[in-house]
Design a protein around this nucleic acid. Structure first.
Lengths: 347, 347
DNA sequence: CGGATATCTGACTGCGCTGTCATGACTGCG
DNA sequence: CGCAGTCATGACAGCGCAGTCAGATATCCG
């Protein structure tokens, strides 16, 4: 028996009706005050707030959600990793949500594949959320269409697989950053730029790959074969051992900083100096990037800005179901030039 | 008007009563099946599940919570940072929660100070959670006592400020790791070990400081003055500049890897070689630790193990309110020796 | 073979809130 | 002064589930 057996009366946590009684008003009026509705006299408002305070009253959100049909909460689907990117994005989302009066419900997916994301979205829907943020999904979301998602969805870092369904926005996109990184190397005089990509199942990896290609093409540079990593420093190290064997490699754009650091280590061990022989650019600007040897040139992802901007649009879609979605805006580009890049060596 | 105007009838999302109608049973029986209660015939169970499937039925958790008084969700209070430690812990908690059937509600605190934590806990209570995890709070939780917390609370990485209140467990604790790190340096022959601590407001920082002291004392080593950082590589770098000026410094235990990396950079710039002149041990084993120069000797925090163990105890407290809390168990110690430590130089 | 027990099912109720509507009191204005 | 409009409040119903209890069968045992 979970219910309150109304014995002690004082022992059970207070309900709005208790507040009402203490304030000498109706229960509905308590609800009005606590929801900031109009048409409540100053006097009553004060009495109600005082009574609520005195009793230590806390609203029961389950009842509120049931009665109003809104949960005032946002669901987030993320990868279950502590990778700097996804983790930072999650923190950015939390920060962006905090002041809106919404609560956060978080579900991870192990793999981020469509089935996993669909399951996560389903469980969020079941919990009841007014909107959903899908952070950095992997692969196409084909299996998503089957879900009847009747709340707005914001997809960060990938084209929205919900596009056909319901009120939807999408956001993210870091091509400009990749282009800036690649361009930086080309501007230094490198004939071309190699690319150490993330796992191709990730949209983030595919985006950066495509943007790197575009930057090379725009510059008329030839496109060397792509080396594939898995975001980890270990995979960057493995890639570095291969790249070090090829003397034509003078510049590498790594799809994240961890791989860049592993890469640099492998190059150093192979006797290829960075940046004298090979220039390396990373991606993310992780906290230690400025302090590794050599300090890493990288592009900083504006996680907070992306999260805030996306959430603004999601909340807009939630609160104005019939209005057109707000258009996405491009995040700022922030290339941080340190010491891992230099002009190519003379031949 | 949020409510379903029962016009199209088919358009509105299905309720348990719709499932009941389709399966030819009562609504209560649907509830029984979906909650796995006893005393339902196989035949009925199948029909109900089929009907639910056909309708794409999803339970309304707000109603469930209201009726049952349980939300089947766990609230988490974390710092709003992407620091590797807290972020990893959050991921560990998510992983640990996922298979238990509970959902996660996350609230960050900006500062992690008592008032912030109290506010976060309050907002979780308001949302309705069956248990709360407070991850790495800062300072003493004096203001916490005022909150009437009537659910079990697990505090990771700090003594529980709720100790006097209600069913409570606590966990974490990394003294053994710190001792192992310090001991490792002493065993190498260093006369003493300097400490680059985290901000003293953090429990994690105080814990490591105390454990470092204890390890020195146990070894009869003198205790050099503590250098204080803020977890960031930048602060490690600043500390490194100061420590580099003191030739008596031969070994440093940094309270996290980021600071260790900044520290090593500063030492290198000052001409003090690591590990030949100065040995450095970090804390966390961040992903790049093995690939910086030199590869960092560090201790790995068993985030997943801590989260799992703590959650097991929290769930036990939730589901057996009257039973004694399970005793905490010590996490495994994992010292990862790489190349940033060596015997002290000959004098 | 009768009563005791185990199994299965449904009617009814209520969780604590918000939406709707009704009711007064008060204002302004011709 | 009377009627419309604004403001302020309360009564009542119902959101979609799970808890309780009662009733209907089936099973068991002496």
């Amino acid at each position: 028996m979970t219910r309150q057996t109304g014995r002690g009366a004082a022992s059970s946590t207070p309900r709005s009706v208790d507040v009402a009684r203490l304030a000498g008003v109706s229960q509905k009026t308590v609800s009005r005050v606590l929801n900031g509705e109009r048409y409540v006299s100053e006097d009553v408002r004060r009495r109600v707030l005082q009574a609520a305070e005195d009793l230590g009253y806390r609203m029961n959100n389950a009842a509120r959600a049931l009665a109003s049909g809104r949960t005032r909460s946002i669901g987030v689907v993320t990868l279950g990793t502590a990778l700097y990117g996804p983790a930072s994005l999650l923190m950015g989302i939390e920060r962006a949500v905090r002041d809106t009066g919404y609560a956060l419900r978080v579900v991870n997916t192990v793999e981020g594949d469509p089935a996993g994301v669909a399951g996560a979205v389903g469980s969020l829907l079941e919990q009841g959320v007014d909107g959903i943020v899908v952070s950095e999904p992997i692969d196409e979301g084909t299996s998503m269409a089957e879900l009847s998602v009747d709340v707005p969805v914001l997809v960060i870092g990938a084209p929205s697989p919900f596009a056909t369904a319901h009120p939807v926005t999408s956001g993210g996109g870091a091509d400009l950053l990749t282009r800036a990184a690649t361009q930086h190397l080309l501007d230094l005089g490198h004939l071309t730029v190699h690319h150490l990509s993330g796992p191709p199942r990730w949209f983030a990896a595919r985006d950066r790959l495509a943007a790197w290609r575009a930057a090379l093409a725009a510059h008329g540079a030839s496109e060397p074969p792509v080396v594939e990593g898995d975001w980890s420093a270990a995979s960057g190290y493995a890639a570095g051992r291969r790249l070090a064997a090829d003397p034509s490699v003078t510049a590498v754009f790594a799809a994240n900083d961890d791989m860049a650091i592993g890469l640099i280590r492998a190059l150093a061990e192979a006797g290829r100096r960075v940046p004298d022989d090979v220039s390396v650019v990373g991606f993310d600007d992780i906290p230690v990037a400025a302090y590794v040897t050599p300090p890493l040139t990288t592009v900083r992802q504006p996680f907070d800005a992306v999260a805030q901007e996306g959430l603004k649009r999601l909340l807009h879609a939630i609160e104005n179901p019939d209005a057109d979605p707000l258009p996405p805006s491009d995040p700022p580009v922030d290339l941080v030039v340190r010491s891992s890049t230099a002009p190519p060596p003379h031949r």
